[in-house]
Design a binder for these strands. Structure first.
Length: 861
RNA sequence: GCCGGAAUGGCGGAACCGGUAGACGCAGCGGACUCAAAAUCCGCCGGUGGCGACACCAUGAGAGUUCGAGUCUCUCUUCCGGCACCA
């Protein structure tokens, strides 16, 4: 073995070994426990960034650990290859998106390989390949025939100069990113997937996902947004026509306290009333302009204007004025609310603003006779008052009674309202899955029949930014109707790329399958046992995938009982780095941290920083690695300088996987130092003899060392189980430090071998290359991946004597060594003999003695 | 505004059930080796007092429960994340 650690050589050899052994290739094996470990697949943007390295290292640690524990582990990799950046790059470089994408895939694949991930590349897929997106199309046509996919109009951002639809991220301050033209809203026909049909199930099943972070489940719950209430009708007459204004409320119990109605600016009543009222029309227009997205709108002033119309209260017959209110949203419920100022914060503010009456109908804890004017609304549930027949009823009974009475009059019923909307999947873009529909003048929208799938996207196109290039290709657009054969037009919209990523996990189970979307191999591998990725996908990607899993079950008949695609979810934290800038005449010029030298005071705090060529820079603190702050660290440079094992060890050891990870060049150097120490320890180790440890031949010091090694191992295995990988890595440091202190003599030899064998196996999921090399080179075995995961020896953890801490009144005063079997009385007596303990106890009455076996003694005086 | 989560040395972080706070690493300081530097190795490393044994203080702030609280309960502060004026 060489004296010097050369990571490049070691890693190349290990990777060649795995390649030649097909070490990561897996198949179905019903006899073994399967484990499907999946990291979110990357978008092939060019090259890997640190977030990828972190994500895939976490997945690889889990994969290799489960393998060594005997599971049949699948860890695949693929490419989320459709999407807008490819079109942007195409315009900038005049390269077809397909070529740009495939080139990026080649680069990133070689980077992933250089990191030594245990990936089964035989299952690689790219969503832009017709073999893959054919099944997007197939599933779409199935859902279309069932009515779970349908067409309706949707609103898009329209750039009037480029004559093209813009994605939200292409709209910058209301203007098109390329043209700077004011963006218009346009209504165009789009296809939707009826995810709302699954709303109830998607919500309820969250409670059956104990392996998901609570935070993610809560975000999904809020997104689905179920509220139970009552739909209530208020009758009115307009131009002698009887009509009903419908509202939705979760507080039907306060119906008797309604003193006005408020409708959204877009509501038909507002629109028709504004026709003969220019002032109202101006107000309606103003409301429509107001942005309705930002959270700070929660505090904007309530504004409104009366329409001059009145509706009839369905139970009291009272006439209530109808107002247009800027706080009522057309997109939720009925676009109208009943105003109950006494018991709703917004209604209260509105009523105050316009001197509308406030009528309390729920008993206030301070008493029924709260004198007007009210100081604030009272929004808690309570008992009805001032409500005629409903007086004295608590919330639920009042809602039931009122709903029943409304139903009898045909003016209301209980209703469940959802926030979740159907999923609009049409994108007016070129680089995506073609929507398999043909528009025929005679037959309407005809789904492309199975035998004509896939509808192949031409790959030689270079978009120019004006409209969808597919529209300009007659050979693509003109096609006979699959139904009647007459000339027809092919749909040119493509699918949202979230469709691609909503089922790739199942497809990984079924490589090289060209007859069906999935096959029975999905039954073996699904569900994904461990899914790893960023929290930014907490809502959309994960919700859509849960929806698709259910749709796939129904359409393929496979994966019965597997309703949820991801059993356990780990959301890894972001990677942060220091950022620095120079002040270039009021403008910040960001300097990459690799170009900065830092000066610290005696405490290690940064006092000043300058560039390597001496210009002073300002330290801006830790932030997400980003292009805009120029603080990214290139994984490639890191691997070339230190090797993949160092990068992997740093990323794992520095922070728990769910925390943010603060980049530190010194930290990386520390990880490298550990790799080098490990290496030189191995270089001086000699060949393993394989003689086991004979515990009775160990002296006290060696016994203590062995205890430490096994105690650290026990803790490391516990930490591994709860995915706290940072302390598993540092357990490697601890065991190494123990081994490094051991004498190099015959008495210690067997323990040295046992300890090193444990250390190498424990570290192998984190730093697979160096451990692979040392394992083989030192004669521990052929292939460390095939070795058993180390378990602590219970005998090594037995101790004849234990150290107990002695406390007086809960404060640490000394420690004693007692035989393991010592009884309470003996421990008490020994504790009292301790000199320092005596100082605090003497002359006082010992009132109580607490003995925690194996831990401590507490004397209460 | 509402809903989550977090707060421990100069820094990242550790501390399983309430039981020795600060493991491991980074930075820093001192030393060895060297003509010198790098690399490597050894020692110190929360604060205050003390020659020392040791004592006191200390896990964002304040209370509480307990023999004993970083850990449990309540109130507050700050930071991070999510969102929907959702009727």
């Amino acid at each position: 073995m060489k004296e010097a650690y050369e990571p490049q050589t070691v890693e190349r050899e290990a990777q060649q070994f795995w390649e030649s052994q097909r070490s990561f290739h897996v198949g179905e094996d019903p006899a073994r426990q399967k484990f499907y470990c999946l990291s979110m697949f990357p978008y092939p943007s060019g090259k890997l960034h640190m977030g990828h390295v972190r994500n895939y290292t976490i997945g690889d640690v889990l994969t290799r650990h489960h393998r060594m524990r005997g599971a049949n582990v699948l860890q695949p990799m693929g490419w989320d290859a459709f999407g807008l950046p490819a079109e942007n790059a195409a315009m900038a470089n005049r390269v077809p998106p397909a070529k740009w994408t495939y080139d990026n895939i080649a680069t990133m694949k070689s980077q992933l390989k250089s990191l030594g991930f245990a990936l089964d590349w035989a299952r690689e897929l790219a969503t832009c390949s017709p073999d893959y997106y054919k099944w997007n199309q197939w599933l779409f046509t199935r859902l279309f025939k069932k009515g779970l996919a349908y067409k309706k109009t949707g609103v898009v951002n329209w750039d009037p100069v480029d004559q093209t639809v813009l994605a939200n991220e292409q709209v910058i301050e209301g203007r098109g990113w390329r043209t700077g033209a004011l963006v218009e809203k346009r209504e165009i026909p789009m296809y939707f997937l009826r995810i709302t049909a699954y709303a109830e199930e998607l919500l309820a099943a969250l409670d059956r996902l104990p392996g998901w972070p609570e935070q993610v489940k809560l975000m999904q719950k809020n997104w689905i947004g179920k509220s139970e209430g009552v739909r209530i009708g208020f009758e009115y007459e307009m131009q002698d026509q009887k009509s009903v204004l419908w509202v939705f409320t979760t507080r039907a119990d306060t119906l008797m306290g309604a003193t006005f109605m408020a409708v959204a600016a877009e509501h038909p009543i507002a629109v028709s009333a504004s026709r003969k009222n220019p002032e109202l029309q101006a107000f309606v227009e103003e409301c429509k302009k107001g942005a309705v997205m930002e959270a700070d709108l929660a505090q904007i002033e309530k504004k409104g204007m009366p329409t001059g119309m009145f509706v009839t209260h369905p139970l009291s017959g009272e006439k209530l004025p109808v107002w247009v209110g800027n706080y009522v949203l057309m997109g939720y419920g009925e676009g109208a609310v009943m105003g109950v100022p006494a018991h709703d914060e917004r209604d209260y503010a509105f009523a105050l603003q316009y001197q509308l009456p406030i009528k309390p109908v729920i008993r206030h804890p301070l008493g029924d006779t709260v004198p007007p004017p009210w100081k604030s609304e009272y929004a808690e549930h309570g008992v009805c008052i001032n409500s005629g027949p409903y007086d004295g009823l608590p919330f639920e009974k009042a809602v039931d009674a009122i709903a029943a009475d409304l139903k009898a009059k045909g003016l209301g019923e209980k209703q469940v309202q959802w926030r979740l909307r159907d999923w609009g999947i049409s994108r007016q873009r070129y680089w995506g899955t073609p929507i398999p529909i043909v528009h025929c003048a005679a037959c309407g929208d005809v789904p492309v029949p199975d035998e004509q799938l896939p509808v192949v996207l031409p790959e030689d196109v270079v978009p120019d930014g004006t409209g969808n290039p597919l529209n300009k290709r007659a050979s693509y657009v003109d096609t006979p109707c699959p139904s009647c054969g007459k000339p027809a037009r092919r749909e040119t919209d493509t699918m949202d790329t979230f469709v691609d990523s909503s089922w790739y996990f199942a497809r990984f189970a079924c490589p090289a399958q060209d007859k069906t979307m999935l096959d029975e191999r999905a039954n073996y591998w699904m569900p994904v046992d461990q899914y790893i990725g960023g929290i930014e996908h907490a809502i959309l990607h994960l919700l859509y995938s849960r929806f698709f899993q259910r749709a796939m079950q129904e359409e393929t008949g496979l994966m019965r009982g597997v309703d949820e695609p991801f059993t356990n979810l780990l959301t890894q934290g972001m990677v942060l780095a220091e950022s620095y800038y120079t002040d270039a005449g009021g403008r910040r010029e960001w300097v990459n941290p690799s170009q900065v030298e830092v000066e610290r005071d005696a405490d290690g705090k940064i006092v000043s920083a300058k560039t390597k060529d001496g210009r002073p820079v300002i330290h801006d603190g830790m932030g997400t690695m980003s292009k805009s702050k120029n603080n990214g660290v290139d994984p490639q440079e890191l691997i070339e300088k230190y090797g993949a094992d160092t990068a992997r060890f740093f990323v794992i050891a520095t922070a728990p996987p769910t925390n943010t990870l603060e980049w530190s060049d010194n930290g990386v150097a520390g990880a490298y130092r550990f790799m080098k120490r490990l290496w030189s320890f191995g270089a001086g180790f000699g060949r393993a003899q394989g003689a086991g440890v004979n515990p009775s031949s160990l002296d006290a010091a060696l016994k203590a060392a062995r205890f430490q090694i096994h105690a650290v191992l026990r803790q490391a295995n516990y930490d591994m189980g709860k995915h706290q990988f940072n302390t598993v890595a540092t357990a490697g440091n601890k065991i190494f430090n123990v081994l490094d202190e051991l004498p190099r003599d015959d008495a210690a030899r067997a323990l040295l071998e046992e300890g090193f064998s444990i250390l190498l196996r424990l570290l192998s999921p984190i730093t697979p290359h160096v451990t692979h090399h040392l394992w083989r080179e030192l004669g521990f075995g052929e292939d460390i991946m095939k070795a058993a995961w180390p378990e602590p020896d219970p005998k090594a953890l037995e101790q004849d004597e234990v150290e107990l801490v002695v406390q007086v009144n809960g404060k640490l005063r000394g420690s004693i060594r007692v035989p393991k079997a010592a009884d309470r009385a003996a421990i008490e007596e020994l504790a009292l003999t301790n000199a320092n303990v005596q100082r605090f106890v003497s002359g006082q009455q010992v009132k109580k003695v607490v003995v925690v076996p194996g831990r401590l003694v507490n004397l209460v005086v």
